[in-house]
Design a protein around this nucleic acid. Structure first.
Lengths: 187, 187
DNA sequence: CGCCGAGTTGAACTGAATCAAGAAACGTGG
DNA sequence: CCACGTTTCTTGATTCAGTTCAACTCGGCG
Protein backbone atom coordinates (compact mmCIF):
# COMPACT_ATOMS: atom_id res chain seq x y z
CA UNK A 1 0.00 0.00 0.00
CA UNK A 2 1.88 2.98 -1.29
CA UNK A 3 -0.75 5.34 0.10
CA UNK A 4 -0.15 4.19 3.65
CA UNK A 5 3.57 4.82 3.28
CA UNK A 6 2.91 8.27 1.92
CA UNK A 7 0.71 8.91 4.92
CA UNK A 8 3.31 7.59 7.35
CA UNK A 9 6.02 9.71 5.78
CA UNK A 10 4.07 12.86 6.45
CA UNK A 11 4.75 12.31 10.12
CA UNK A 12 7.96 10.30 10.49
CA UNK A 13 10.56 8.65 8.28
CA UNK A 14 11.12 5.24 9.76
CA UNK A 15 13.38 2.30 9.08
CA UNK A 16 10.59 -0.25 8.76
CA UNK A 17 7.74 1.32 6.82
CA UNK A 18 6.48 -2.10 5.74
CA UNK A 19 5.63 -2.98 9.32
CA UNK A 20 3.18 -0.10 9.27
CA UNK A 21 1.50 -1.25 6.12
CA UNK A 22 1.26 -4.81 7.38
CA UNK A 23 -0.26 -3.73 10.66
CA UNK A 24 -3.20 -2.18 8.85
CA UNK A 25 -4.24 -5.65 7.91
CA UNK A 26 -8.03 -5.61 8.14
CA UNK A 27 -9.71 -4.47 4.97
CA UNK A 28 -13.25 -3.20 5.14
CA UNK A 29 -15.65 -1.87 2.54
CA UNK A 30 -18.43 0.44 3.61
CA UNK A 31 -21.43 1.47 1.57
CA UNK A 32 -22.64 5.02 1.30
CA UNK A 33 -24.49 6.12 4.47
CA UNK A 34 -23.36 3.07 6.42
CA UNK A 35 -21.56 3.45 9.72
CA UNK A 36 -18.04 2.52 10.68
CA UNK A 37 -18.89 3.42 14.27
CA UNK A 38 -21.89 4.30 16.39
CA UNK A 39 -21.92 5.75 19.90
CA UNK A 40 -21.37 3.41 22.82
CA UNK A 41 -19.37 0.70 21.08
CA UNK A 42 -15.73 -0.21 21.45
CA UNK A 43 -13.53 1.79 19.14
CA UNK A 44 -10.09 0.42 19.78
CA UNK A 45 -8.98 0.97 16.25
CA UNK A 46 -8.23 3.53 13.60
CA UNK A 47 -9.00 3.27 9.93
CA UNK A 48 -6.97 4.47 6.99
CA UNK A 49 -9.16 5.59 4.13
CA UNK A 50 -8.00 3.98 0.88
CA UNK A 51 -10.98 5.32 -0.93
CA UNK A 52 -13.97 7.39 0.12
CA UNK A 53 -15.08 10.17 2.45
CA UNK A 54 -16.34 10.09 6.02
CA UNK A 55 -18.01 12.37 8.45
CA UNK A 56 -17.98 12.19 12.23
CA UNK A 57 -21.07 13.48 14.02
CA UNK A 58 -23.37 13.17 17.03
CA UNK A 59 -26.73 14.39 18.29
CA UNK A 60 -26.60 17.23 20.82
CA UNK A 61 -28.88 17.73 23.85
CA UNK A 62 -31.75 18.95 21.68
CA UNK A 63 -31.34 16.12 19.21
CA UNK A 64 -29.71 18.28 16.56
CA UNK A 65 -27.11 16.56 14.42
CA UNK A 66 -23.67 18.11 14.84
CA UNK A 67 -20.89 17.30 12.38
CA UNK A 68 -17.54 17.48 14.11
CA UNK A 69 -15.10 16.22 11.53
CA UNK A 70 -14.55 15.03 7.96
CA UNK A 71 -11.94 12.66 6.60
CA UNK A 72 -10.89 11.80 3.07
CA UNK A 73 -8.74 9.41 1.15
CA UNK A 74 -5.27 9.18 2.58
CA UNK A 75 -6.31 10.16 6.11
CA UNK A 76 -7.12 8.26 9.27
CA UNK A 77 -10.68 8.16 10.51
CA UNK A 78 -12.31 6.95 13.70
CA UNK A 79 -13.65 8.34 16.94
CA UNK A 80 -10.33 9.89 17.84
CA UNK A 81 -11.66 11.54 20.97
CA UNK A 82 -12.81 8.21 22.38
CA UNK A 83 -9.70 6.48 21.03
CA UNK A 84 -7.40 8.81 22.92
CA UNK A 85 -9.57 8.72 26.02
CA UNK A 86 -9.84 4.94 25.79
CA UNK A 87 -13.56 5.24 26.31
CA UNK A 88 -16.51 3.83 24.41
CA UNK A 89 -17.25 5.67 21.20
CA UNK A 90 -19.11 8.95 21.43
CA UNK A 91 -19.65 9.70 17.75
CA UNK A 92 -21.15 8.23 14.65
CA UNK A 93 -18.63 7.70 11.88
CA UNK A 94 -20.45 7.47 8.59
CA UNK A 95 -19.36 6.93 4.99
CA UNK A 96 -20.51 9.80 2.79
CA UNK A 97 -19.78 7.69 -0.27
CA UNK A 98 -18.83 4.10 -1.03
CA UNK A 99 -15.53 3.64 0.82
CA UNK A 100 -12.66 1.28 1.47
CA UNK A 101 -10.68 1.10 4.69
CA UNK A 102 -7.56 -0.53 6.09
CA UNK A 103 -7.94 -0.95 9.81
CA UNK A 104 -5.41 -1.21 12.62
CA UNK A 105 -6.31 -2.13 16.18
CA UNK A 106 -4.97 -0.27 19.18
CA UNK A 107 -3.27 -3.50 20.16
CA UNK A 108 -1.34 -3.84 16.92
CA UNK A 109 -0.43 -0.21 17.06
CA UNK A 110 0.94 -0.62 20.57
CA UNK A 111 2.82 -3.73 19.49
CA UNK A 112 4.41 -1.68 16.77
CA UNK A 113 5.60 0.85 19.35
CA UNK A 114 7.19 -1.97 21.34
CA UNK A 115 8.87 -3.75 18.43
CA UNK A 116 9.99 -0.55 16.70
CA UNK A 117 10.19 2.22 19.30
CA UNK A 118 10.74 4.63 16.41
CA UNK A 119 7.07 4.34 15.67
CA UNK A 120 6.41 6.40 18.74
CA UNK A 121 7.61 9.30 16.63
CA UNK A 122 4.69 8.66 14.39
CA UNK A 123 2.22 8.50 17.29
CA UNK A 124 3.66 11.69 18.69
CA UNK A 125 3.73 13.64 15.44
CA UNK A 126 0.28 12.51 14.53
CA UNK A 127 -1.16 13.63 17.88
CA UNK A 128 0.66 16.95 17.54
CA UNK A 129 -0.78 17.37 14.07
CA UNK A 130 -4.27 16.70 15.41
CA UNK A 131 -3.71 19.22 18.20
CA UNK A 132 -2.72 21.89 15.72
CA UNK A 133 -5.74 21.21 13.56
CA UNK A 134 -8.20 21.34 16.40
CA UNK A 135 -6.60 24.44 17.92
CA UNK A 136 -6.84 26.27 14.63
CA UNK A 137 -10.46 25.31 14.25
CA UNK A 138 -11.19 26.42 17.78
CA UNK A 139 -9.66 29.81 17.05
CA UNK A 140 -11.73 30.18 13.90
CA UNK A 141 -14.91 29.32 15.73
CA UNK A 142 -14.08 31.64 18.60
CA UNK A 143 -13.13 34.70 16.57
CA UNK A 144 -14.68 34.64 13.12
CA UNK A 145 -18.16 35.27 11.76
CA UNK A 146 -20.19 32.56 10.07
CA UNK A 147 -19.40 34.04 6.67
CA UNK A 148 -15.67 34.15 7.36
CA UNK A 149 -15.77 30.57 8.54
CA UNK A 150 -17.47 29.52 5.35
CA UNK A 151 -14.96 31.34 3.18
CA UNK A 152 -12.14 29.74 5.14
CA UNK A 153 -13.72 26.36 4.53
CA UNK A 154 -13.78 27.02 0.81
CA UNK A 155 -10.00 27.46 0.87
CA UNK A 156 -9.54 23.86 2.03
CA UNK A 157 -8.93 21.57 -0.88
CA UNK A 158 -11.05 18.41 -1.08
CA UNK A 159 -14.15 20.38 -0.24
CA UNK A 160 -15.46 19.74 -3.69
CA UNK A 161 -18.92 18.37 -4.33
CA UNK A 162 -18.91 15.31 -2.19
CA UNK A 163 -20.16 16.80 1.05
CA UNK A 164 -23.76 18.01 1.37
CA UNK A 165 -24.03 21.64 2.42
CA UNK A 166 -25.98 20.90 5.55
CA UNK A 167 -23.04 18.95 6.91
CA UNK A 168 -20.66 21.76 6.07
CA UNK A 169 -23.03 24.19 7.82
CA UNK A 170 -23.04 22.09 10.96
CA UNK A 171 -19.26 21.71 10.78
CA UNK A 172 -18.76 25.48 10.91
CA UNK A 173 -21.37 25.78 13.64
CA UNK A 174 -24.34 27.25 11.78
CA UNK A 175 -27.69 26.02 10.44
CA UNK A 176 -28.23 25.02 6.85
CA UNK A 177 -30.59 27.96 6.28
CA UNK A 178 -27.91 30.38 7.41
CA UNK A 179 -25.33 28.80 5.16
CA UNK A 180 -27.70 29.07 2.26
CA UNK A 181 -28.12 32.80 2.89
CA UNK A 182 -24.39 33.29 3.22
CA UNK A 183 -23.85 31.57 -0.12
CA UNK A 184 -26.35 33.88 -1.75
CA UNK A 185 -24.46 36.92 -0.48
CA UNK A 186 -21.04 35.62 -1.32
CA UNK A 187 -21.75 34.49 -4.83
CA UNK B 1 11.43 19.05 41.75
CA UNK B 2 8.75 16.70 43.00
CA UNK B 3 6.08 18.63 41.09
CA UNK B 4 7.74 17.96 37.75
CA UNK B 5 7.83 14.24 38.48
CA UNK B 6 4.18 14.29 39.45
CA UNK B 7 3.47 16.02 36.15
CA UNK B 8 5.53 13.54 34.16
CA UNK B 9 3.82 10.60 35.84
CA UNK B 10 0.44 11.80 34.66
CA UNK B 11 1.55 10.89 31.15
CA UNK B 12 4.19 8.16 31.34
CA UNK B 13 6.02 6.19 33.99
CA UNK B 14 9.65 6.19 32.92
CA UNK B 15 12.85 4.65 34.12
CA UNK B 16 14.76 7.93 34.37
CA UNK B 17 12.45 10.56 35.79
CA UNK B 18 15.41 12.61 37.03
CA UNK B 19 16.51 13.28 33.48
CA UNK B 20 13.22 15.07 32.96
CA UNK B 21 13.66 17.24 36.01
CA UNK B 22 17.23 18.10 35.07
CA UNK B 23 16.25 19.05 31.54
CA UNK B 24 13.94 21.76 32.85
CA UNK B 25 17.03 23.59 33.99
CA UNK B 26 16.28 27.24 33.33
CA UNK B 27 14.46 28.95 36.17
CA UNK B 28 12.56 32.12 35.47
CA UNK B 29 10.49 34.43 37.64
CA UNK B 30 7.84 36.56 36.06
CA UNK B 31 6.00 39.45 37.63
CA UNK B 32 2.27 39.93 37.42
CA UNK B 33 1.21 41.20 33.97
CA UNK B 34 4.62 40.54 32.45
CA UNK B 35 5.01 38.40 29.35
CA UNK B 36 6.71 35.07 28.88
CA UNK B 37 6.07 35.37 25.15
CA UNK B 38 4.88 37.91 22.62
CA UNK B 39 3.87 37.29 19.00
CA UNK B 40 6.59 36.96 16.41
CA UNK B 41 9.43 35.74 18.59
CA UNK B 42 11.06 32.34 18.74
CA UNK B 43 9.27 30.03 21.12
CA UNK B 44 11.36 26.89 21.00
CA UNK B 45 10.63 26.03 24.57
CA UNK B 46 7.96 25.02 27.03
CA UNK B 47 7.64 26.19 30.60
CA UNK B 48 6.53 24.25 33.63
CA UNK B 49 4.68 26.43 36.11
CA UNK B 50 6.10 25.94 39.60
CA UNK B 51 3.99 28.73 40.94
CA UNK B 52 1.50 31.12 39.37
CA UNK B 53 -1.13 31.40 36.66
CA UNK B 54 -0.88 32.30 32.99
CA UNK B 55 -3.16 33.24 30.18
CA UNK B 56 -2.53 32.89 26.47
CA UNK B 57 -4.17 35.47 24.22
CA UNK B 58 -3.96 37.47 21.01
CA UNK B 59 -5.66 40.36 19.24
CA UNK B 60 -8.09 39.44 16.48
CA UNK B 61 -8.67 41.24 13.16
CA UNK B 62 -10.67 44.00 14.86
CA UNK B 63 -8.12 44.41 17.62
CA UNK B 64 -10.23 42.64 20.22
CA UNK B 65 -8.31 40.68 22.81
CA UNK B 66 -9.10 36.96 22.65
CA UNK B 67 -8.06 34.67 25.48
CA UNK B 68 -7.39 31.21 24.14
CA UNK B 69 -5.98 29.33 27.11
CA UNK B 70 -5.13 29.37 30.81
CA UNK B 71 -2.45 27.46 32.69
CA UNK B 72 -1.84 26.92 36.39
CA UNK B 73 0.70 25.49 38.74
CA UNK B 74 1.75 22.02 37.75
CA UNK B 75 1.01 22.51 34.03
CA UNK B 76 3.07 23.40 31.02
CA UNK B 77 2.62 26.77 29.39
CA UNK B 78 3.86 28.30 26.15
CA UNK B 79 2.62 29.00 22.66
CA UNK B 80 1.85 25.36 22.02
CA UNK B 81 0.35 26.01 18.61
CA UNK B 82 3.53 27.67 17.40
CA UNK B 83 5.67 25.14 19.25
CA UNK B 84 4.07 22.24 17.44
CA UNK B 85 4.09 24.07 14.12
CA UNK B 86 7.70 25.14 14.66
CA UNK B 87 6.73 28.66 13.68
CA UNK B 88 7.31 32.00 15.35
CA UNK B 89 5.02 32.64 18.27
CA UNK B 90 1.49 33.75 17.54
CA UNK B 91 0.23 34.49 21.03
CA UNK B 92 1.00 36.56 24.07
CA UNK B 93 1.68 34.47 27.14
CA UNK B 94 1.16 36.61 30.21
CA UNK B 95 1.48 35.99 33.94
CA UNK B 96 -1.79 36.73 35.73
CA UNK B 97 0.05 36.74 39.03
CA UNK B 98 3.63 36.63 40.26
CA UNK B 99 4.95 33.34 38.83
CA UNK B 100 7.88 30.96 38.74
CA UNK B 101 8.81 28.76 35.81
CA UNK B 102 11.17 25.93 34.93
CA UNK B 103 11.96 26.03 31.25
CA UNK B 104 13.02 23.35 28.78
CA UNK B 105 14.16 24.08 25.24
CA UNK B 106 12.94 22.11 22.24
CA UNK B 107 16.56 21.03 21.78
CA UNK B 108 16.87 19.53 25.25
CA UNK B 109 13.52 17.87 24.86
CA UNK B 110 14.59 16.29 21.58
CA UNK B 111 17.87 15.20 23.17
CA UNK B 112 15.87 13.50 25.86
CA UNK B 113 13.94 11.59 23.21
CA UNK B 114 17.20 10.42 21.67
CA UNK B 115 18.94 9.43 24.89
CA UNK B 116 15.85 7.84 26.43
CA UNK B 117 13.47 6.83 23.63
CA UNK B 118 10.92 6.06 26.35
CA UNK B 119 10.40 9.77 26.68
CA UNK B 120 8.60 9.69 23.36
CA UNK B 121 5.79 8.12 25.32
CA UNK B 122 5.57 11.32 27.27
CA UNK B 123 5.59 13.48 24.12
CA UNK B 124 2.93 11.30 22.60
CA UNK B 125 0.66 11.12 25.64
CA UNK B 126 0.98 14.81 26.25
CA UNK B 127 0.00 15.66 22.68
CA UNK B 128 -2.92 13.24 22.91
CA UNK B 129 -4.01 14.88 26.13
CA UNK B 130 -3.88 18.30 24.49
CA UNK B 131 -5.91 16.97 21.55
CA UNK B 132 -8.60 15.68 23.87
CA UNK B 133 -8.78 18.96 25.74
CA UNK B 134 -9.08 21.07 22.65
CA UNK B 135 -11.58 18.72 21.01
CA UNK B 136 -13.80 18.89 24.06
CA UNK B 137 -13.61 22.66 24.11
CA UNK B 138 -14.41 22.80 20.43
CA UNK B 139 -17.50 20.67 21.01
CA UNK B 140 -18.64 22.92 23.83
CA UNK B 141 -18.20 26.03 21.73
CA UNK B 142 -19.96 24.45 18.77
CA UNK B 143 -22.98 23.10 20.59
CA UNK B 144 -23.65 24.94 23.85
CA UNK B 145 -25.10 28.35 24.70
CA UNK B 146 -23.05 31.05 26.40
CA UNK B 147 -24.74 30.32 29.70
CA UNK B 148 -24.05 26.60 29.46
CA UNK B 149 -20.44 27.31 28.61
CA UNK B 150 -20.11 29.50 31.66
CA UNK B 151 -21.66 26.90 33.94
CA UNK B 152 -19.33 24.28 32.50
CA UNK B 153 -16.42 26.57 33.23
CA UNK B 154 -17.51 26.87 36.84
CA UNK B 155 -17.22 23.10 37.18
CA UNK B 156 -13.50 23.25 36.44
CA UNK B 157 -11.48 23.42 39.61
CA UNK B 158 -8.84 26.16 39.83
CA UNK B 159 -11.25 28.69 38.44
CA UNK B 160 -11.31 30.44 41.75
CA UNK B 161 -10.70 34.15 42.12
CA UNK B 162 -7.44 34.53 40.31
CA UNK B 163 -8.75 35.16 36.84
CA UNK B 164 -10.58 38.41 35.99
CA UNK B 165 -14.05 37.82 34.57
CA UNK B 166 -13.34 39.58 31.31
CA UNK B 167 -10.70 36.98 30.50
CA UNK B 168 -13.08 34.16 31.33
CA UNK B 169 -15.70 35.79 29.09
CA UNK B 170 -13.29 35.93 26.18
CA UNK B 171 -12.22 32.33 26.84
CA UNK B 172 -15.78 31.07 26.41
CA UNK B 173 -16.27 33.28 23.37
CA UNK B 174 -18.49 36.07 24.69
CA UNK B 175 -18.08 39.71 25.75
CA UNK B 176 -17.63 40.78 29.34
CA UNK B 177 -21.02 42.53 29.35
CA UNK B 178 -22.71 39.31 28.29
CA UNK B 179 -20.95 37.33 30.99
CA UNK B 180 -22.03 39.90 33.53
CA UNK B 181 -25.67 39.45 32.50
CA UNK B 182 -25.37 35.68 32.59
CA UNK B 183 -23.98 35.83 36.10
CA UNK B 184 -26.92 37.96 37.20
CA UNK B 185 -29.38 35.37 35.87
CA UNK B 186 -27.53 32.39 37.22
CA UNK B 187 -27.01 33.64 40.76
C1' DC C 1 -6.90 60.67 48.45
C1' DG C 2 -7.50 60.03 43.85
C1' DC C 3 -7.35 57.25 40.03
C1' DC C 4 -7.75 53.33 37.16
C1' DG C 5 -9.12 48.86 35.91
C1' DA C 6 -12.89 45.60 36.63
C1' DG C 7 -17.57 44.73 36.71
C1' DT C 8 -22.45 46.00 35.92
C1' DT C 9 -26.27 47.93 33.61
C1' DG C 10 -29.45 49.98 29.99
C1' DA C 11 -31.07 50.72 25.23
C1' DA C 12 -30.59 49.90 20.68
C1' DC C 13 -28.91 46.86 17.32
C1' DT C 14 -27.55 42.70 14.61
C1' DG C 15 -26.12 38.14 13.10
C1' DA C 16 -27.84 33.93 13.11
C1' DA C 17 -31.70 30.70 14.58
C1' DT C 18 -36.23 29.02 13.97
C1' DC C 19 -40.04 27.28 11.55
C1' DA C 20 -42.52 26.41 7.71
C1' DA C 21 -43.11 26.16 2.85
C1' DG C 22 -41.60 25.48 -1.74
C1' DA C 23 -38.09 24.22 -5.53
C1' DA C 24 -34.50 21.49 -7.16
C1' DA C 25 -31.67 17.43 -7.32
C1' DC C 26 -31.03 12.74 -6.48
C1' DG C 27 -31.54 7.73 -6.51
C1' DT C 28 -34.27 3.69 -6.65
C1' DG C 29 -37.47 0.46 -8.23
C1' DG C 30 -40.33 -0.76 -11.76
C1' DC D 1 -34.78 5.13 -18.46
C1' DC D 2 -38.66 7.21 -16.57
C1' DA D 3 -41.54 8.41 -12.50
C1' DC D 4 -42.01 9.00 -7.86
C1' DG D 5 -40.54 9.79 -3.35
C1' DT D 6 -37.01 11.46 -0.53
C1' DT D 7 -33.36 14.46 0.51
C1' DT D 8 -31.16 18.73 -0.10
C1' DC D 9 -31.27 23.51 -0.74
C1' DT D 10 -33.43 27.95 -0.75
C1' DT D 11 -36.33 31.53 0.87
C1' DG D 12 -39.41 34.52 3.85
C1' DA D 13 -41.04 36.21 8.33
C1' DT D 14 -40.15 36.37 12.87
C1' DT D 15 -37.59 35.77 17.09
C1' DC D 16 -33.74 35.70 20.05
C1' DA D 17 -29.10 35.41 21.99
C1' DG D 18 -25.46 37.99 22.35
C1' DT D 19 -23.08 42.58 20.87
C1' DT D 20 -22.17 47.32 21.10
C1' DC D 21 -21.32 51.47 23.30
C1' DA D 22 -21.63 54.50 26.76
C1' DA D 23 -22.48 55.57 31.52
C1' DC D 24 -21.98 54.45 36.19
C1' DT D 25 -20.21 51.91 40.50
C1' DC D 26 -16.97 49.81 43.15
C1' DG D 27 -12.65 48.32 45.21
C1' DG D 28 -7.89 48.27 45.45
C1' DC D 29 -3.36 50.21 44.66
C1' DG D 30 0.09 53.83 44.43
Amino acid sequence: MKELKVFLNKFATLAEPDAFVEAFSIIKKIKKKDFLLEPGVNCNYLAFIRKGTFRVFFYDQEGVEVTVWFSWEGMLVGDLLAFYKKSKSIFYVQAIEESELSIISREKLEDLYIVYPDYLQFARKYAEHVSVNVMERLLTLQTKSAEERYLELLETPNFLQKIPLKYLASYIGITDSSLSRIRRNVR
